[in-house]
Simulated scan of single mutants.
Amino acid sequence: MSNDPTDISGLPEDLGIGEDLDRSEQRVSIRVDTRRYGKAVTIVEGFDSSSADLTEIASTLKHSLAVGGTVTDDRIELQGEHGDRLRQILREEGFEIE
């Protein structure tokens, strides 16, 4: 057992429950922006950068959506417009969506 007072699950750290709880407490927002030449970019922001590995999350999203993207200023930018499918993937990953 962990001696960390922030571990509210009471379960061993090996199970990764603490990470799931951290994700479920984060409310992220999704918006679509238009860039140069009218290209759509989907922006996901609102992550708590201290508890979320944005590079890992971005990699998962890019792989699931088969698109390119980047992490900039504590937000994830994905090429194209991916509203509904992106919401589904983020919920499956344990995030709450605004």
Rank of each mutant, 00 (worst) to 15 (best):
A58H: 01
D14K: 11
R85N: 05
L78Q: 03
G68P: 03
I97Q: 06
T60R: 11
S2C: 14
G68S: 13
V71S: 08
D20H: 06
S59L: 02
E98K: 09
V71E: 08
G10I: 00
K62S: 01
V67I: 06
G46C: 15
R31Q: 12
D48R: 04
Q26V: 10
L54I: 05
T70F: 12
D33N: 15
I89R: 09
E93K: 14
L54V: 03
E96R: 09
L61C: 07
G83R: 11
G83W: 12
G10L: 01
Y37H: 05
I17R: 07
S9D: 04
I30A: 04
L61K: 02
P12H: 06
R36Y: 14
R91M: 15
K39H: 12
D7R: 03
S9G: 13
S49E: 15
F95V: 09
D14G: 04
I76N: 05
I89F: 06
V28A: 06
L61D: 00
D14N: 06
L15S: 05
E45M: 04
R31C: 07
Q79W: 10
T55Q: 11
E56I: 03
E13W: 06
A66C: 11
L11S: 06
I76K: 06
I89S: 10
K62N: 05
R91F: 11
R85I: 12
H63D: 15
R35D: 13
D4I: 00
E13T: 10
L78W: 01
H82D: 07
F47C: 11
N3R: 03
P5Y: 02
E45V: 04
E96N: 08
H63Q: 13
I17H: 09
D33V: 10
R87H: 13
T60Y: 00
D53I: 10
E56Y: 01
D20E: 07
S50Y: 08
S29A: 13
R35L: 07
E25K: 09
I57C: 07
S29G: 08
F95R: 04
Q26S: 08
T72R: 13
R36T: 15
E19R: 01
G18Y: 00
E96W: 13
T6C: 04
R87V: 12
I17P: 01
I30G: 03
I17M: 11
T42D: 12
L54N: 02
